[in-house]
Write a protein that binds this DNA or RNA. Structure first.
Lengths: 194, 194
DNA sequence: ACCGGAATGCTAGCACCGCTAGCTTCCCTG
DNA sequence: CAGGGAAGCTAGCGGTGCTAGCATTCCGGT
C-alpha cells in the first residue's frame, strides 16, 4: 500500500511539474513555443510521458487554465474585500483593474482560460471550482450595483466588457496608454454616482 | 503596355480568388482547415503561387480581415442610419445587435479581423480604410450618448464590450440564449433613459 | 521570323508539429 | 530468485508552413 501511494504521489508531482512547466514556458515565449517536444525536454522526460498524464496538448492547456483561474480568484478576492469599505463603486473598480492587470501580467495563462482551451465546461454546474470561484468574485462586486437587473446576467455583461478590453488591447487593436481611462468609463457606466 | 496590364489584371483577379477562397473555406470549416495545401487545391494552383501573392498564411488572413471589415462597415451603416429616427438609444442598440449578428454569422471572418491576424496597423492613421470605416460607424452611434466623455475612448470601450460578448459567447464561456438580454443591459448602461 | 532571356509555376523537400505503436528495461510480487 | 506487469523509451506517421531549384512558356529585339 505504501509503495503504491508513493508512486501515486510521485506521479501527481510529475503532473504538477508538467503543468507548471507549460505555464512558465507559455508565459515566457508564448503558447506557440509550447510544443510537446519542447515541454518533454523541459521536464526531462520523453514525449509519450505527457500522454500518459493528459489526453493531448489541449488537456495540458486546460490544466493550466484551471490553475490560472484559481490564481485569478485568489487575486480578485482581497482586491474586492479590501476596497469594499470605500463603496460599491470602489469595489467594482478594484475588481476591474485587478482583473485586467492579471491579464496583462500573465497573458498566456489568460488566453488558456478565456481564449484558447475550449474543452472545459463553463457556464454549467459542472464547471471546475476555481472557475466558478473567479466568476463568483466578479459577481460579488457587480451584485450591489445591479439594481433591478439580474445580477448573474449583469455580471456576465460586465465581465465580457473587461474581457473585450483585455483582448483588444493586447492584440494591438486598442492603444494601451488609455486603458485606465477606458476602465474608469466602464465602471462609471455600471456603478454611476457612487 | 496592353499585355502588361492584362497580366496585372489577371494577377489581381487571382489574388481576389485566393482571398475569397480562404474566406469561404474558413467560414465553412474553420481556420484550422485553411492550410496552404488545401487553399492551393481550391484555387487550382500549386502552393508556391500563394507565396508570390502573400508573404505567408498570416498575410492571407489579414487580407480576409480587411475585406471582412469592409463588409462589416457596410452592414453597420444602414442599421445605424435606419434606426436614428427612433432615437440615440435605438441607433446604439441597432449597431450593437448588427455587430454581434455579423460575428455570429461570419465567425471566421470576425476572428480574422479581431482575434487572430496581428500584423495589421489598427489604432493609427495608417490603418486600412475599411477598418477605420467600421470603427467610424460605431463612433457615430456612440457619440450622441457620450455626454462629457471623450467620444473616441467611449466608443472603444463600448466596442470592447461588444467584442467581449461575442468572443465569450462563441467560445462557450457564456450561454448563448441570454445574449439579447445582455445586449439590452449593455445598451441601457451606455444610453440610459432614452 | 526567330531566338535569347525573363518571368511564371511546378515538383520535391526541409524542419517542425501533435500523436502513437511497439519494444526494452526495470522493479515489485509471490 | 524467477516471472509478470508497469513504465518510459525510440522511432515513426501523417500533417503543417514555407522554400529551393528546375521546366516551361511567353514576350521583345534584331
Amino acid at each position: 500500500m505504501s509503495i503504491q501511494t508513493r508512486r501515486e504521489r510521485e506521479r501527481a508531482e510529475r503532473e504538477r511539474l508538467i503543468v507548471t512547466a507549460a505555464q512558465e514556458l507559455a508565459e515566457a515565449e508564448g503558447w506557440s513555443a509550447v510544443t510537446t517536444r519542447r515541454l518533454a525536454a523541459e521536464i526531462e522526460y520523453s514525449q509519450p510521458v505527457l500522454y500518459s498524464h493528459f489526453k493531448g496538448k489541449g488537456a495540458i492547456m486546460a490544466a493550466v487554465a484551471v490553475q490560472g483561474c484559481a490564481d485569478l480568484a485568489a487575486e480578485l478576492r482581497p482586491a474586492r474585500t479590501g476596497a469594499e469599505p470605500d463603496g460599491r463603486r470602489a469595489a467594482l473598480a478594484a475588481v476591474a483593474s485587478t482583473y485586467t492587470d492579471f491579464a496583462r501580467r500573465r497573458p498566456a495563462t489568460y488566453d488558456a482560460i478565456f481564449t484558447n482551451a475550449v474543452d472545459l465546461p463553463f457556464a454549467t454546474p459542472e464547471a471546475p471550482a476555481p472557475l466558478r470561484d473567479a466568476f463568483g468574485e466578479i459577481l460579488a462586486a457587480v451584485e450591489p450595483v445591479a439594481a433591478a437587473d439580474d445580477p448573474a446576467l449583469l455580471t456576465e455583461t460586465f465581465w465580457a466588457a473587461l474581457h473585450g478590453l483585455v483582448t483588444l488591447t493586447r492584440g494591438g487593436r486598442l492603444p494601451a496608454e488609455a486603458h485606465d481611462h477606458r476602465l474608469a468609463m466602464l465602471v462609471e457606466r455600471f456603478a454611476p454616482g457612487d
